[in-house]
Amino acid sequence: MAKNNHIESVNSPLNGIEKKTPFSVPADYFEHNPNVILDRISQGTIEKKQVFLFSPGLAIAASILLIAGLFWFYIFNANELDVQEFSLNDEEIQLIIDNPELYGINEFLVNEKYLSSVESYNPLENLSTYSDDEVKSYLETNTDANYIIYEY
């Protein structure tokens, strides 16, 4: 039995244990191993092994949750997304108003859209009763810009 010279206490339970590595290897492992390593080197298969951050099960579960979350988000925010997609900011609206030679605005559609959102809508009412600010505010929040604006 190998002696544990560097164990301080003579009563240490380590002194009663044979000091050998208690593992074994497959038969002829050390005979074949050098050739396996040299084969890997010569075949250029030195690239690093892939290490996945997630285990496969966890990755699948995370994917399902992500898809469900995106689906839920889309369903409950679809209308909001539509409005945001086609709304114009102040500068864009101002650009359109200041450049009548570039853009035309179908006033009839603008007014009809706006009036249809007002409870006391009367299609026969005089269209000129609405100020530019009211129209601008409406355009910013409610209107599909591509529907009412056309390029010359």
């Binding site: 009663g16 244990i17 050998k20 208690p22 593992f23 074994s24 290897v25």
Partner: peptide, 15 residues
Amino acid sequence: DDNFFSGDEIQLKLQ
């Protein structure tokens, strides 16, 4: 359960 563990009980305990 390691097939390539060749130690006795006390060596297993040490590991």
